[in-house]
Amino acid sequence: MPDVIYSLAGKRVYVAGHRGMVGSAIVRRLESEGCEILTVAHAEVDLRRQDQVEAWMAKNRPDAVFLAAAKVGGILANDTYPADFLYDNLILEANVIHAAYEARVEKLMFLGSSCIYPKLADQPIVEDALLTGSLEPTNEWYAIAKIAGLKLCAAYRKQHGKDFISAMPTNLYGPGDNFDLASSHVMPALIRKAHEAKVNGDKEIRIWGTGTPKREFLHVDDCADACVYLMKTYSAESHVNVGSGKDISILELAQLVAEVIGFEGDITRDLTKPDGTPRKLMSADKLRRLGWSPKIGLKEGIADAYHSFLNGHYLKRHIEAAE
């Protein structure tokens, strides 16, 4: 492991978005760091309200911030509510980042998304591919907000010398995921579809599109571990991809999910639905050079996510991810 340049021990660490999947995983991971974890409910502080965010930050004075709060959703949600995804994410990240600067926060990590990259970027996607081509139209609103967030961190570093860094996770899944079929991502949607088909005795489950697009997945606990690792060992303007370095087709993923859950029916394709980006695999080379690699395999991770779903450990509404 590289030298620790920022120890979290004894620090007051604010996790924005602690009720979301990523934020709750970061909270779990921080419990072994010897720090004081700060969180605040949406009912007390609406991150879209600048006055509320600045007042809370000034009063509580965190030393470090993990900005994991976001309004998130899949293709359908992004395509249906473009204004919500752009405005809510822009405003909440700007509020938290500026308030952290005003409150003299020592270090901040902004969590982005792999959708920041061009739709047809060379694979695997390196960090330098940012802003080299057009975005995937079905989620460009969310992507633009996330690009603005990482650039805002870079701007505060350049103008004010703040140690604000950015990490770009790949597709995440695991405890605390959103299993609402109207707003979820592909992994939780497949898990829920396979479970309900098994319970109901259905003969098939249907996936969107051709099933040929390839996607990369990382268990959220691995993501949280990588984020804490980077917070302690990394300081630079450029963002870092956080991923597994491996991808799988949607059809193969559906087959693996069915195997883990025990659904023995057919998997059919709805060719009237969009595929989205043909392939999206981020390069993990930079993160590997920094000394971090994932520990949870895909099959093991799916089993853990399914166990969490059965135990009710998931979001009831996708908007809670912004709390």
Rank of each mutant, 00 (worst) to 15 (best):
D128H: 04
D128F: 01
A129K: 10
G133F: 00
S134W: 00
S134C: 01
L135N: 00
P137M: 10
P137T: 08
T138N: 08
T138A: 11
W141A: 11
Y142S: 09
Y142D: 08
Y142P: 01
I144N: 03
K146N: 09
A148K: 05
K151W: 01
L152W: 09
C153F: 07
A154V: 07
A154Y: 03
A154K: 09
R157Y: 08
R157K: 15
R157W: 06
K158C: 10
Q159W: 13
H160W: 11
H160L: 15
F164I: 15
I165Q: 09
S166R: 06
S166F: 03
P169M: 01
L172V: 05
Y173T: 14
G174I: 12
P175L: 00
G176M: 03
G176P: 02
N178R: 11
N178D: 15
D180E: 08
S184D: 07
H185A: 09
H185F: 13
V186K: 04
M187R: 06
M187H: 03
P188L: 01
R192Y: 07
K193E: 13
A194G: 07
E196Y: 11
A197K: 12
K198T: 14
V199K: 13
N200M: 11
D202F: 06
D202R: 11
K203D: 15
E204Q: 06
E204P: 00
R206V: 15
R206G: 06
I207E: 05
W208Q: 08
W208T: 02
T210G: 10
G211P: 00
G211Q: 01
G211R: 05
T212W: 05
T212C: 08
T212N: 10
P213W: 02
K214V: 12
K214M: 13
K214Y: 10
R215I: 13
E216W: 00
L218M: 08
L218I: 14
V220M: 02
V220W: 01
V220D: 05
D225W: 05
A226P: 01
V228I: 15
L230Q: 04
T233K: 11
Y234F: 15
E237N: 14
H239D: 03
H239W: 09
V242F: 04
G243F: 00
G245H: 03
D247S: 12
I248R: 01
S249N: 06
I250H: 01
I250Y: 00
L253E: 02
Q255H: 09
Q255S: 14
V257D: 11
A258K: 12
V260W: 06
I261S: 14
I261F: 15
F263V: 15
E264C: 06
